[in-house]
């Protein structure tokens, strides 16, 4: 079969497996409870029909939700030993990594779907500016994809899922908060750090402005993380 066929087979299997175990439903439930609570608890105080609060919290929530989604991707296979079977099937490492990565991205997208109901509710309550909402969702998918790539990398490091989760979460948190944590640094350095943070780029996209610089940032982050995973996996041999 073609390489694309193998990629698709791996993607389909990984994606299906998410929904076989109860973990998927638990993760989605936690995500919805968190976002719902944080969003609606202050929503009525501001009396404004907008989704900005929802999207401003998203990077932080994603920082620890997405690693729970990705932690099993490689670690579980290392523990069970099925990794040996996977690698000795006629598939390339690239297909394996991309297949797993895309399955995680698809899962994150599915997880975001129910939050559209927030948007619809808000649209009923007032005049909603759709630009930032559409931008926000595009940003959310890009951010989710980037964090998934980071999670795939973290999972490729260890056969312990907990460690994979913590490593993934630390990297994602750092990317989200780097510019906010290091505010005491000189202005010039701060600019660079801000630019290297995922939170900053996400907020740009979430304002409804699709700038090639932000897109390039996310693409680079995904590429670097997946390439890192590729190196790690090659090294395992």
């Amino acid at each position: 079969m073609t390489a694309a066929g193998n990629l698709l087979s791996i993607f389909k299997r990984e994606f299906k497996v998410y929904f076989i175990s109860p973990i998927a439903y638990i993760v989605i439930a936690i995500f919805l409870i968190l976002t719902g609570w944080f969003f609606f608890s202050t929503f009525f105080l501001y009396n404004q029909a907008e989704m900005r609060d929802f999207f401003s919290l998203l990077p932080l929530i994603f920082s620890f939700i997405v690693p729970t989604v990705t932690m099993r991707l490689f670690s579980e296979e290392f523990t069970v030993g099925s990794y040996e079977i996977l690698v000795t099937l006629p598939v390339t490492f690239r297909d394996i990594i991309l297949g797993k990565f895309l399955a995680a991205v698809a899962f994150v997208a599915i997880m975001l779907l129910p939050t559209l109901s927030y948007t619809i509710s808000v649209a009923f309550l007032g005049e909603l500016d759709w630009g930032p909402v559409i931008g926000g969702y595009i940003g959310a998918v890009l951010l989710g994809a980037s964090f998934s790539a980071v999670g795939v990398f973290a999972s490729s490091l260890t056969k312990n899922q907990i460690i994979a989760f913590i490593v993934g979460m630390i990297i994602c948190m750092t990317l989200t908060l780097i510019d906010k944590l290091l505010f005491f640094l000189p202005e010039s350095l701060l600019g660079f750090l801000q630019y290297s943070g995922a939170g900053y780029h996400f907020q740009n996209v979430a304002r409804g402005i699709l700038d090639s610089r932000d897109l390039l940032y996310f693409a680079s982050l995904i590429f670097i993380a997946l390439f890192g995973a590729h190196l790690i996996i090659m090294e395992r041999r």
Partner: peptide
């Protein structure tokens, strides 16, 4: 491989189907 480390949470049929897909 030794002791057949298969994917634990798949049905036998689904698993063989998956292998058949990858085997083209």
């Amino acid at each position: 491989p030794e002791s057949a480390p298969l994917y634990q949470n798949m049905l036998v049929f689904d698993y063989l189907n998956y292998v058949a897909d990858i085997r083209g």
